[in-house]
Design a protein around this nucleic acid. Sequence first.
DNA 1: GGATCATAAATTGGCGCCAATTTGATTACC
DNA 2: GGTAATCAAATTGGCGCCAATTTATGATCC
Lengths: 211, 211
Amino acid sequence: MNSLEAEATAQEPQTPDVTELILQDILAGRLPPGTWLKQIDLERRYNCTRPEVRRALDRLVQKRLVEHIPNRGYHVHEQDGRRAQEVSDIRVILEVAVSDRIIANASTADIAKLRTLALRFDDLVLNGTMLELYEANLAFHRHLLALAGNQELVELITEIRQRTSSAPVSQWRTRARIEQSGREHQQMVDAIERRDVSHLMELTRKHILQA
Amino acid sequence: MNSLEAEATAQEPQTPDVTELILQDILAGRLPPGTWLKQIDLERRYNCTRPEVRRALDRLVQKRLVEHIPNRGYHVHEQDGRRAQEVSDIRVILEVAVSDRIIANASTADIAKLRTLALRFDDLVLNGTMLELYEANLAFHRHLLALAGNQELVELITEIRQRTSSAPVSQWRTRARIEQSGREHQQMVDAIERRDVSHLMELTRKHILQA
DNA sequence: GGATCATAAATTGGCGCCAATTTGATTACC
DNA sequence: GGTAATCAAATTGGCGCCAATTTATGATCC
């Protein structure tokens, strides 16, 4: 939703939710998989108290993003190839299945909005951080899914996306792949505009599987 | 997984995860939607410390089972008809979509195991608590889904099931409906044994939607 | 010289206290 | 008699300390 307003690492004395800050650092690849998250380090890094760190770590464990070993500590969950594949499979099933609803509900305004978001993604390919790109991509997919008329579905897919793709860097290996993703976004909007359900389904399937 | 070994409310001095205890009480309907979860009450009810209560409450908020209002407190999330409908829709999409994989992977042993679980459900209809029935039902559906060969899918559906069906009582309103569910379980196993994909899909769809 | 044990440093994790906010009741006032 | 303001009780929530466990280091023994 809101892009990154916490660009300065730890400057402001206010408390903008430590969980979100750690999450973004993991997503941005600043805390790579396997990294041990020592409570004192986090306390200093985010300029917060011990209980806040603990609460954040516990939440991230619930989200399956970090692993907890009793009396040993917390570390960023290793990338699991099988799990990533399984999540992709789930996404394909769901997003392909609601393609018809998306097309049925998409108004002219919705399509315009999707184009804007797709363009923003393309723009950030050239000049933008990996995190910004990640969030722009997420925004596009969230608005797309929202058209299916099932709010829970939007939240659910947002959740399971985070669950595996620890570092977005590992998602899009090359710039060529990123640019390809951008083009696919455009094609998906085109398909929606033409009300071509089967084409949208095929585009969605490919887009997710090779992301 | 493990059935209820914490039958005695709060007797043993050990700490068998307070989160799970509160969760079960919500699921069993002992803590109806809307109930305010005062920290002192929980502290006494489950014979645990303040920080444990807080951690449990925070986790349940993450699971969307309780709602948190800052400086006001925590209360069991109200049953949301729309959300329940949306979760059912998601379940239908997913479980119908993997029907073919379930049938492709189901061995003779798997089918026998499913029959056992279905029978256990039927048995508990007569003599068993609501919670036991709920867990037997969950066990059947988990084993069924596991045959699709996607572990994440099993965990995901288990999660979203909990997310809405606050009180399992509200799921199966009448005993007639429960017995009908039991028969449908049997029919689903029959369909798997006959390798009748389309029939399993139709049974699954109806079973979920009118549960 | 290498391995093992003991000791010390560091880290995790449990626990209780106290301030801030809210709720309910009593009192004063219109 | 009803309403509004004030005060007290209760509840939430932040914070730091200390014990338990683990890890690293160094000394001793084989």
